[in-house]
């Protein structure tokens, strides 16, 4: 169940910085450990940049969530871009179509507790990540 959430548009480099700052603030409020804050902000930075660069812009929504046992933070990155045709390939370390390091998707997945991705060619991409408080 979602408690509070904030959504910000991602259409410029500056917005990616804003995403990092928002996620950091929420992670501190949620009392994530320093290492977990760092992991979550890093994952968010990677995925927000992808939303901007590959998705052609979109939105990022940051929410405090809670299940039966734990509290956490969920971040949803959504764009209406070209989508990802071969997801396994895109999630391979080092794979990039944009001259990057190809570690954004695969690395972000390693840095969080839950990672789900919903994408299809021509249908845009939505990625949801969650980090739970320990």
């Amino acid at each position: 169940m979602s408690e509070e959430s904030r959504q910000i548009p991602v259409t410029t480099d500056q917005d990616v910085v804003r995403v990092r700052q928002l996620v950091r603030t929420v992670a501190v409020d949620a009392k994530l450990s320093l290492v977990d804050q760092t992991k979550l902000v890093t994952a968010a930075s990677e995925l927000a940049r992808n939303t901007l660069v590959y998705g052609g812009g979109g939105t990022v929504e940051v929410s405090r969530v809670r299940n039966e046992i734990r509290a956490g933070i969920r971040i949803v990155f959504a764009d209406q871009g070209p989508g990802i045709a071969d997801l396994d390939l895109a999630l391979t370390d080092g794979y990039t179509t944009g001259g990057g390091l190809g570690l954004g998707l695969s690395g972000a997945r390693r840095l969080v507790d839950d990672f789900t991705i919903d994408t299809a060619p021509g249908e845009g991409t939505t990625i949801s990540i969650t980090k739970w408080c320990r």
């Binding site: 290492v35 760092t38 992991k39 890093t42 570690l103 695969s106 690395g107 972000a108 390693r110």
Partner: peptide, 14 residues
Amino acid sequence: MRPAVAITLVELGL
């Protein structure tokens, strides 16, 4: 480099 940054970088794969 801060310790938490180092830990995160390695897990990121960098």
